[in-house]
Amino acid sequence: MNREVARVSAIWVLLIALTVATYAAGKAGLGGPVVMYALLLSIFIKGHFIIADFMGLRNAPRLWRWLVHGWLVLVMGFIALAYLMGLKT
């Protein structure tokens, strides 16, 4: 198995593992800010590898890498901000 195939295969295993962990958190009914931050971290890790390695933006012009990663971070920021606002209601 050449290096590239090995890399994307390892990434696939990581993404599936993080999905199982996300599901387990939901199944256990875990909630609260700490869990929310952990889930956002999981989203970022998965999103990063999809953007960089699956989409192939690791080797693309820096602008595009920053645009798509920027979208992910912005969306995560909104989710966190809204969640914290919800705690106050």
Binding site: T22, Y23, G31, L39, I43, G47, F54, L72, M76, Y83
Partner: peptide, 16 residues
């Protein structure tokens, strides 16, 4: 399409 679902699943099904 996959990237978007990666956000959607935890947001709608799990975060509480």
């Amino acid at each position: 399409v996959d990237l978007v679902w990666i956000v959607l699943f935890p947001l709608v099904y799990v975060i509480r």
